[in-house]
């Protein structure tokens, strides 16, 4: 009885761990995608600055702020063990 209970616990632990890992992996993938977008935004902002389009630069800065807040939110809300 105890042995079968132990096996069930081990299986649940493994499933929990795999769910946790999948959740963290998904978060890393989303954050990595946001960072790629941020890289693009930085180059676009530099180009806009050199092309004397300050309005565009501020718009891209706004995007960067939103992106960073999203990254913070995603990383802070990651599930605890």
């Amino acid at each position: 009885m105890n042995r079968s209970r132990g096996r069930l616990d081990a299986r649940e632990n493994a499933r929990d761990h795999s769910d946790l890992a999948a959740s963290l992996n998904a978060r890393i993938a989303i954050v990595a995608f946001i960072i790629v977008c941020q890289l693009w935004a930085l180059t676009a902002a530099l180009d806009a600055w050199l092309g004397a389009s300050p309005a565009e630069v501020w718009l891209l800065l706004g995007f960067q702020v939103l992106a960073f807040l999203s990254v913070l939110l995603i990383s802070r809300s990651s599930p605890k063990e």
Binding site: Q38, L42, L60, Q64, A67, F68
Partner: peptide, 11 residues
């Protein structure tokens, strides 16, 4: 991500 934000703010 924070570094990229800081870079854009610098620009």
């Amino acid at each position: 991500s924070g570094g990229l934000l800081a870079g854009t703010a610098a620009v």
